[in-house]
Amino acid sequence: MTIPVLDLGPLRAGTPGALEALGAELRHAFTEVGFYFVRNHGIDQALLDATFEAAERFHAQPLDAKLALRINEHNIGYMPLRGATTRVNAVGEVALPNANEAVFFKRDLPPDHPDVRAGLRFRGVNQWPANLPGFRDQVLAACDAFEGLALSLLPVYARALGLAPGYFAPFFTDPMYTLRMSHYPQQEPTAPENEFGIAPHLDTSFMTILAQNRIPGLSLRLTTGEWVDAPAPEGALLINGGMMLRRWTDNRFLATPHRVINRSGRERYAIPFFFDANYTAVMAPITADGSPARMPAITYPEFMTGYQRANFHHANEEKVELQGA
């Protein structure tokens, strides 16, 4: 299998025909593979390296310091090791609780923001560690960079679906997003077969941007059912779609299963960025010919509330993961 590589250089330079060419390439990627790489994306490698370092600094803290920021109903904060079991978006049989710990950040809303004051779910205030100088600034810089890239790709997604370049713009004013900083401890060779860093799953997102990890462990499931290790070409970012994209495209675009197993002998960190439409956007499935859709329209909070209750231990007594990878 070859994961398509989209070169954003011509689009960023305003080259005539670049948007149409990328739209065709993206359509191929999402109907055949479900993942693609981008080159010349405009995010500096030094920023990515510093964000990985920030993730490592966070998880190196004493457990008590991390638990002081325990994850809440907004999916903001720290989730302890084995704090989630992939169920709703599971691929195959439900595995053991995931062998990773993670901390989640969303758009940095002030306490007096109307959505915060109204108590809207998933629109809370970020929880920041007290003794990590520069950490907050690094997280916000990474979020700004990833959000800018995601917004710049929306016209490509529109053209891949045969829509006007600006089709998605109204849905992505003040878009929802989550930066997850994950730590995958080394998994012992004697670990049970059904224990994973993250079990085989589908992401929930419209778009997931994954900075390439120098420590292996991520693998994808092809449409044939075969699992293959994800390559890590220098200077590229890996992007995939999740259940929200699949639903919005009336199941025309793939949400490809993936998993993490860390048997590298080293500690592994990941900084996936999950990007979605704005809070109130009504996402009615886009059919190929205008015929009735298979699924009803849905909003972000409707979709994510049910998902969180099903998968996150802190959200449900069943002990059943929000944003994976």
Score class of each variant (00 low, 15 high):
Leu140Arg: 13
Arg247His: 12
Val5Trp: 12
Ala277Ile: 01
Ala65Pro: 05
Leu161Arg: 10
Gln187Asn: 11
Ala102Thr: 14
Phe58Leu: 14
Gly225Leu: 00
Ala164Gln: 12
Asn311Arg: 13
Trp248Gln: 14
Glu56Ala: 15
Tyr177Ala: 06
Gln186Gly: 09
Gly217Asn: 03
Gly148Arg: 08
Phe105Leu: 09
Gly148Pro: 08
Thr31Gly: 07
Arg107Phe: 02
Pro231Val: 04
Asn98His: 04
Ile43Phe: 00
Ala150Val: 03
Ser219Cys: 00
Arg82Gly: 04
Phe30Asn: 11
Leu120Glu: 05
Leu109Asp: 08
Val260Met: 04
Arg309Phe: 13
Ile286His: 12
Asp144Gln: 05
Ser219Trp: 01
Ala84Gln: 15
Pro97Thr: 02
Pro114Gln: 10
Phe172Tyr: 13
Pro272Arg: 12
Phe30Ser: 04
Arg70Asp: 00
Phe58Gln: 15
Thr173Pro: 01
Arg39Ser: 15
Thr305His: 14
Phe273Lys: 15
Leu69Asn: 11
His258Pro: 02
Glu195Pro: 01
Tyr269Pro: 04
Leu11Gln: 01
Ala297Asp: 03
Ala54His: 14
Met176Pro: 01
Asn72Leu: 04
Phe275Cys: 02
Pro189Glu: 10
Glu32Asp: 10
Phe37Pro: 00
Lys106Val: 04
Thr249Tyr: 14
Phe52Glu: 03
Glu302Gly: 08
Met304Ala: 07
Thr178Glu: 08
Leu254Gln: 06
Pro110Thr: 08
Tyr78Val: 02
Pro200Arg: 12
Ala297Tyr: 03
Gly197Phe: 07
Asn316Gln: 12
Ala315Gly: 06
Met295Phe: 12
Ser291Arg: 14
Ser182Cys: 08
Val38Cys: 06
Arg252Thr: 09
Arg39Ile: 10
Leu6Lys: 06
His28Phe: 15
Pro165Gln: 06
Asp276Asn: 14
Glu226Asn: 04
Gln45Arg: 13
Phe171Gln: 12
Pro155Trp: 00
Arg82Tyr: 02
Arg268Asp: 04
Tyr269Phe: 15
Pro155Arg: 03
Thr208Val: 15
Arg57Pro: 00
Ala288Asn: 02
Asp229Asn: 01
Val103Tyr: 12
Tyr177Trp: 13
Gly42Asn: 07
His183Val: 05
Phe168Arg: 00
Gly148Lys: 05
Thr249Val: 13
Gly197Gln: 04
Met243Cys: 13
Gly225Cys: 02
Gly235Ala: 09
Leu151Asp: 03
Glu321Tyr: 15
Thr51Ile: 06
Ala164Asp: 12
Gly162Tyr: 03
